[in-house]
Structures are given as structure tokens and as C-alpha cells.
Amino acid sequence: MKGLILAAGRGTRLRPLTHTRPKPVIRVAGRPIIHYAVENLREAGIGEIGVVVSPETEKDIREALAGYGVRYVLQEEPQGLAHAVAVAREFLGDSPFVLYLGDNLFQKGIRPFVAAFRDGVSAVIALVRVEDPRQFGVAVLEGERIVRLLEKPQNPPSDLAVAGVYVFAPEVLEVIQDLKPSARGEYEITDAIQGLIDRGREVVGVEVSGWWKDTGRPKDLLDANRLLLEELSPRVEGEVEGSELTGRVVVEKGARVVRSTVIGPAFIGEGAVVEEAYVGPFTSLGPGARVVRSEVEYSILEDHAALEDVALRLQESILGVGARVQSRNGLPRAHRLILGDLSQVELA
């Protein structure tokens, strides 16, 4: 069995964070999201992994997965999940495979879905109960067998949404070959699954155990960061001077915590600096990030982001790569903002 991770999307719901880089490389709990996908596949016994990238995402994805020994498949234009599978046909060959959306996170991995793929089963679909199924593909079950699948229905027939992992027999490639574009002009994986059902094949639904996150919006990133930090094991490899660390705190090699308070769970990345500052629970700092004479909690600071000399505590915030928030002295006393498209600021 092979693994296929999809990482070619533009991540429009997360702009401006994704204006310059793809969603799967954004860090949660100190690591790019796509790392968790690769490791979940390998924990399920899948060693041969392909990653579908686009011309826009390829460079960043390759950098994030350097040393992981995966193969890359180029999808020139985003035309839907089923199209991404079709362009990977040469890589997949005649093997069954796990299709994994590169921006999804599963607390307990994907082994139950792989284990449910047995003789006579053409597909296994991960399912999760959600409050508003209208934003997802929705499954109708008889026992464990899926008998109908609908893409973002206005009147959902159940609360079982399709999560971001699928296990397929190679015959799904033949179904995809015959697909027509949907109303939005894409080749939908839900249509491919429905095609298997219509051909009388057995498609099994398995509910997700533990939490599942689709990191499609900023609040989802923050929640995913919280959930992953809850499972953090404390570790101090960097320099800690005149500071108090409480709870589960990771200080990576090359990081410095000086005359500060850090309350876990919190992650201080390689080369980050926390000086005369407060870092509160559910906060992660990426490599080279800085928090100086400031306070922050329940937030994500990406690589080389900086929070300096800010009087009010920062909460529920995400600072992208190289973003800076700092105070301004002198007159006139005013806020000075340089914001990209779709940015959001709340001032107290």
C-alpha cells in the first residue's frame, strides 16, 4: 500500500497567511502541518509516500519535507481532489493507497482506516460527526457500508462528514477516468466514491477516534495548536536564565529564555528569544521568533516573527513568517499598520 498526500491547494481561507506559502507548511505546536501527515502514514506501515504539489507550492513543500524521502507529483492546475489522484496515476500504479489531505490532523493517527481495508472492500472513508455538515461531504450509512455520498448538501441527510483520509483500491482510478467536472468545474473525490457505490462496490465508513482538525481557518490553526500542545512532553535544550518555566514547556536547542515566565503547554522553537516577557499557555514560537518585553498567550508566532515592547497582552493571534508587532514611541500617538489583503487587526 502507498500513501498520497495532497498539498497543491492555494489555501484561500487562510489568507493572508497563505499568500506567500502553502497551508501544509504552517507550523502548529512547532512543526509544519504536513509532518504529521507523513508520520501518521508511516506509523500505519506505509513507507512509499507521494506528495502532490503545484508550481506555487512545490518549493515550500520540498523544503518542509527535506530528508523525509518522499516523492513528488506535480499538478499543474488545481482541478479537484480526484484530478490530483489522476495525475499521480504513474506513482500509484496498481497498488491500493491512502489518500491524505495535507492540512488535516488526526489525534490517534490513521491505522483504524488502513486496518478496515480488507478483501472485498473498494474504499474506506474516514467519517466524523459535526454540528454543521453543510460545509462537508456527507455520508449515509447502512451498518458500516456507505450507500450515498453528497458534497456540501443544503439539507444534510446525516451528521457524518467525510474527514481528510481515504483508503482506495486501484480500481478507483478507472472511475476517476470517467468523471465529468462538477458544477464548480472540479473533479470531485466524492463523485469518484459515489461511482464506486453505483457500481455495487463496497465502500466502508469508519468514524474517527479522538479529535480531528481541518486547519482551514485561523481559529482552526489555533485550536489545532492547543490540542497538539496538550500532548507535549517537556524538554529543555536551549538556554534558560533567571526565568520560571511551569508545566509542559519545550525550549529547543539554540533558543534563549531570559528573565521571563513561560507557562505551558508552550513551545519555544530553535533560535527563538524570550526576554523579559511572559509566554502563556497554548503558545508556540517558531524558529528565530522573538518575544521581548511583551506578553502573549494562546497564539502562534511563525519563523522570525517578533513581538517587542507591546504594552497589552496578545491573545488568540497568529503572526506569519517575519511579521513584526512593536510599540512606537513619540508623537503623534497613533497606530501605524501595514497590512496585506484579507488581514485582520483588533485594537484595544
Rank of each mutant, 00 (worst) to 15 (best):
L342W: 05
G69S: 10
V292S: 01
V291C: 10
G143W: 07
L105Q: 02
V172N: 05
K180M: 11
D223Q: 14
L6E: 03
H19Q: 12
F91K: 14
Q177K: 15
G242W: 02
K152S: 12
V130C: 08
I34F: 12
Y187D: 10
F106W: 12
P156V: 01
A139S: 12
L160M: 10
G238I: 01
E316L: 11
A334T: 05
Y298D: 13
G242D: 10
H19S: 14
V98Y: 06
P218R: 13
R201H: 14
V51F: 07
T261R: 15
D198V: 06
G288V: 00
A311K: 15
P16R: 06
R89H: 11
D159P: 00
F136R: 06
E237S: 14
G210K: 07
A139N: 10
A183F: 14
S317Y: 03
V25A: 11
G200H: 09
E275T: 07
A277H: 02
R256E: 11
E237G: 11
V251L: 07
L221R: 04
A255H: 00
G271R: 07
S243D: 03
V28K: 12
V52Q: 13
F106Q: 05
V204Y: 08
S182Y: 07
Q135F: 14
K213E: 13
L232T: 06
A7E: 04
S343Y: 08
E48V: 03
A115K: 15
L319F: 05
T190M: 14
D303E: 15
K213S: 12
F91Q: 14
E275M: 07
V28G: 12
G264E: 02
